[in-house]
């Protein structure tokens, strides 16, 4: 069976700063893998290397068996199959929610207007913001914007989804709506690589949890092990800080 994502000995430098120092991760089809770790540990960089928003310095990334780090790979074709959800939503502010979800279908997949609109409405309904189709992003709450962003990615029928702290920019009372959508996606069998600080979500939804620190993977295993019974002191320190920030 081909892996959904296979990352081998991935290194990434920004100038003199070595942000990723040899990362190995595999994600199987249908799996949900959560990446946790302190800020600055390289989680976003790792995710961004998977759809080549960052060019790795060394190492390989294979998506469904295709080496995307090959210089001859068609990056646009690879990205079409990978949905990405950003911390800051990054909706297009000059388009309505509906247009946001339609535009790439029309311009990239060359779907006709009618089909693109049908697919867009289906996906907006799927994430619970169907009645906001005609609204501009500025008229939506953060939680609604993030759900439109998820619909925008889903409308491309991706084989896997990357989430970079999708709830970190949200007011606390709006986090639940977005997590519920992600949970439903996971149940439907979507392959997901999720950077998150939501330990409850990681514990309940993830098949595996990866703990990163200082550009390396410190622990990788089922949530009951990594979150429930961490082997490493660095993991324990991090979890203590995340789970009991008041102490």
């Amino acid at each position: 069976m081909t892996h959904a994502i296979e990352i081998k000995d991935l290194h990434k430098h920004f100038g003199m700063n070595e942000v990723l120092r040899g990362i190995d991760v595999t994600v199987e089809p249908g799996q949900v893998v959560c990446v946790i770790g302190p800020s600055g540990s390289g989680k976003s960089t790792l995710l961004r290397c998977v759809n080549l928003l960052e060019q790795p310095t060394r190492g390989k990334v294979l998506v469904e068996g295709v080496e995307i780090t090959d210089p001859d790979a068609d990056i646009d074709a690879v990205r079409r199959r990978i949905g990405m959800v950003f911390q800051q939503f990054n909706l297009f502010p000059h388009m309505t929610a509906l247009q946001n979800v339609m535009i790439a279908q029309q311009r990239v997949l060359k779907r006709g207007r009618k089909e693109a609109e049908d697919v867009a409405r289906t996906n907006l309904d799927r994430v619970g913001v169907g009645e906001k189709a005609a609204s501009y992003p500025a008229q939506l709450s953060g939680g609604q914007q993030q759900r439109v962003a998820i619909a925008r990615a889903l409308a491309m029928s991706p084989d896997l989804m990357l989430f970079d702290e999708p709830t970190s920019a949200l007011d606390p009372e709006l986090v639940g709506d977005v997590l519920a959508v992600m949970r439903k996606l996971a149940e439907e069998g979507m392959t997901m690589l999720v950077v998150t600080h939501e330990m409850g979500f990681a514990r309940e939804v993830a098949d595996r949890v990866v703990f990163m620190d200082g550009g390396v993977i410190v622990e990788d295993g089922p949530p009951a092990q990594v979150i429930g019974a961490p082997q490493h002191e660095r993991t324990r320190t991090f979890l203590r800080r995340v789970l009991h920030p008041e102490d």
């Binding site: 646009d76 990205r79 079409r80 990978i82 949905g83 297009f92 790439a104 990239v108 962003a149």
Partner: peptide, 10 residues
């Protein structure tokens, strides 16, 4: 904005 567009395959 560019990153969102590029990651949709544009």
């Amino acid at each position: 904005q560019t990153e969102a567009a590029r990651s949709l395959g544009m």
